[in-house]
Lab assay of single mutants.
Amino acid sequence: HFTSQQLQELEATFQRNRYPDMSTREEIAVWTNLTEARVRVWFKNRRAKWR
């Protein structure tokens, strides 16, 4: 589960860029205190939901 702060950060990034690269995902991981893998999976799932 994600905190509302984490989701806000993830959503804001998603609005700007639906396909963040590795370095962007790592930055998000640092800001949100999540692993890069969790961030990558979140984006994958979010893109699926967005379609």
Rank of each mutant, 00 (worst) to 15 (best):
R47D: 03
D21I: 04
L7H: 07
S23T: 12
W31T: 15
E26L: 14
V39N: 00
R47Q: 07
V30P: 01
R16I: 13
N45Y: 14
M22T: 09
E9A: 14
L7T: 07
A37H: 11
W42V: 00
Q5V: 10
A37F: 13
F14G: 01
A12L: 11
E9G: 10
H1D: 11
F43M: 02
V41I: 13
N33P: 01
F14S: 02
F14Q: 01
E26I: 14
T32F: 11
N45E: 14
T3F: 04
S4P: 14
S23V: 11
Q5W: 14
R47G: 01
F2K: 02
Y19W: 11
Q8M: 12
F43Y: 06
D21Q: 06
H1N: 11
A37S: 11
T32P: 01
E36A: 06
R38N: 11
F43G: 00
A29N: 01
K49E: 15
A37C: 08
V41K: 15
F2C: 06
R25A: 03
N17T: 08
R51H: 12
T24C: 12
L10C: 00
R40T: 06
E27I: 11
T32H: 07
N33Y: 06
E9N: 09
W42P: 00
R38Y: 11
R47K: 03
F43D: 00
A12G: 07
R18L: 04
L34I: 06
K49V: 14
V30C: 09
E11Y: 04
R18W: 06
V39T: 00
T24V: 09
F14H: 04
T35W: 03
R16T: 11
W31K: 15
K49A: 10
E26F: 12
I28E: 01
T35F: 04
R51M: 13
E11V: 04
A48R: 15
A29L: 04
R18D: 05
T35P: 07
W50C: 09
F43W: 02
D21K: 05
R46H: 03
A48C: 09
W50N: 06
A29F: 03
Q15Y: 07
I28R: 01
E26W: 09
T3V: 03
F2D: 02
H1L: 09
P20D: 02
A48Y: 09
E26V: 14
E27M: 12
E9Q: 15
E11K: 04
L10P: 00
R16N: 11
Q5H: 12
E36D: 01
T35I: 04
Q6S: 05
R46L: 01
T3E: 04
L34G: 04
E11A: 02
E11M: 04
Q8V: 10
N17P: 01
V30W: 09
